[in-house]
Design a protein around this nucleic acid. Structure first.
Lengths: 214, 214
DNA sequence: CCATTAAAGGAACTGGAGTCCCGTTATGAG
DNA sequence: CTCATAACGGGACTCCAGTTCCTTTAATGG
C-alpha cells in the first residue's frame, strides 16, 4: 500500500483557524438563536434554516459549521458546560446533597436550560456523538460533586467504601425521571425529597462498593 | 348558535370501522417492522417509507394510519403496554422492589424493548401526544406495583403515610438515568442497588407525605 | 352468495430541507 | 498597511419525505 496519495484531504474544522471576530460572533448568534427556538417551540421545531434566519446568518454557514440539529444541540450543551456553578459546602451530607438537588431542579425548570436538556437527551438517543458529549458532561458534573460524599465518609456519616459517584447520581436520577416520564412539574419539594432519599440510602450502606449482600 | 352545518366532517379514524382481517394484519406487520428497525438501527433511521417496505405494505397506508414517526412509536408503546407482566410478591419490601427493579432492568436491556423505550422517551420530548401516552403508561405501571409498598406499611416495614408511588418511581429512576446519561451497560447489580437504595430510603421515612422536616 | 364501502395500494406530484458553486468579506500574519 | 485566504453568504439546484388522486381489494352486513 502506497501512502501519500492525493487523499480527499479534509483540512481542519471550519472555525478553528480564525476563531476571532466574525466567526465568534456568528457562533454566539447561532447558539443564541438555537436556544431561543428550543425555549419557545421545543426540539421538534429546531430547523437549521430557521435558526440561520433568526441569527441573521447565512444558511450555508450553519450547515457548514454544524450540519445537523444534533450537532448544534451538542455544541449548545458544550457551551453551557463552560458556565459551571461551583459546588457549595454546607458541612453535612444532607445539606450538600440538597444544594445539589436544588441546583439540578432549578436548571431543569429554567425556561432556557430545561428544554435544552430535554433536547440533548432526546438527541443523544439517536446520535452517538451527541450521546458521547452528554455522557462526558454528566461524568464531569458528577465528579465535581462527588467530593462531598468523600468528606461525609471522613466524618463517619456514611460507610468508608461508599461509591461517591453513585450517590451523586442517585440525587439527580429521580428528578430526571420525573422530568421525562411525568407531567407533574418539578418543584423544590421534589428536590429535597431526592436529596433526603439519597442521603438516607447512603447512610444505610446501599452504595458501598463490591456489594456482597443477598 | 346553529348546529348541523356542513362541517369538514372528518369521519372515524381509519382502521376503526373494519378492524378485522387485512387491517389487523397490516397493523401487526407495520408494528413488527417498526420494532425491527428500532432494534437494528435505532430511532434515527426510523423512516415511514422504509417501515412500509419492510412490512410489505403500501407507503400510503402507513402515512394514512400513523402519519408521523412519533405516532407510530406511541402506538408501538400502546401495543407493548398490553403485554404487562404480573407483579410478583415475595413477602418483603426489599424482595418486591428487587423483583420490580430486575424486571425494569431486563426490559431496558432487551434487544427490542430497550431501543423502543429510548425512542419513546425521545419522541415524548418533542411531541405532546406521545408524551401523554408515555405518562399514562408509567402511571399505570407504577400503580400496578404500588400495592407492595402499602403491604410493607401494613407489616410495619415503612412509615404508615409513605407515598407508595414515589417509592416505586425511586426504584426505576436510577436505571433510566443510567440508561440515558451513561454508556455503562445496565446490569443486575445496578438493579439490585436501586432496589436496596429505595427500600432503605423508604424505611428511613424519606417518602412520607406532607413532609415537615428541615 | 352479493352489495356496499372501508381500507389498502400504486403512481404521479410537490415543497422544502440540505447541497453546491462561486463571489464577497474581513481575519490574522508579516 | 498589505496580502493571502479562512470563513461567510446569496442563490440555484437536487432529492426525497410526505401528500394527493384514483384504482383495486376485501371486510362486513344482509
Amino acid at each position: 500500500m502506497s501512502a501519500g496519495e492525493p487523499e480527499p484531504e479534509q483540512g481542519p474544522e471550519p472555525g478553528t483557524v480564525r476563531p476571532g471576530g466574525r466567526t465568534a460572533r456568528v457562533r454566539a448568534a447561532v447558539l443564541q438563536a438555537a436556544g431561543d427556538v428550543l425555549a419557545e417551540q421545543g426540539f421538534a421545531h429546531l430547523d437549521l434554516g430557521d435558526v440561520a434566519r433568526r441569527a441573521q446568518v447565512g444558511r450555508t454557514t450553519v450547515y457548514r459549521r454544524w450540519g445537523t440539529v444534533t450537532a448544534l444541540v451538542a455544541d449548545l450543551l458544550q457551551d453551557m458546560a463552560e458556565q459551571s456553578l461551583p459546588r457549595t459546602e454546607t458541612g453535612s451530607l444532607l445539606g450538600d446533597l440538597r444544594a445539589n438537588a436544588r441546583l439540578v431542579q432549578r436548571t431543569l425548570t429554567d425556561a432556557r436550560q430545561g428544554p435544552l436538556f430535554k433536547a440533548v437527551i432526546a438527541a443523544a438517543t439517536w446520535d452517538a456523538r451527541t450521546a458521547e458529549a452528554l455522557h462526558r458532561f454528566y461524568d464531569t458534573r458528577v465528579a465535581e460533586w462527588a467530593p462531598c460524599v468523600r468528606q461525609a465518609a471522613d466524618r463517619g456519616e456514611v460507610p468508608e467504601d461508599t461509591d461517591a459517584h453513585e450517590v451523586i447520581r442517585a440525587v439527580s436520577a429521580p428528578l430526571y425521571y420525573r422530568l421525562l416520564t411525568s407531567d407533574v412539574p418539578l418543584d423544590r419539594a421534589a428536590a429535597d425529597r431526592a436529596a433526603e432519599a439519597a442521603a438516607a440510602a447512603a447512610r444505610a450502606g446501599a452504595y458501598v462498593r463490591h456489594h456482597k449482600r443477598t
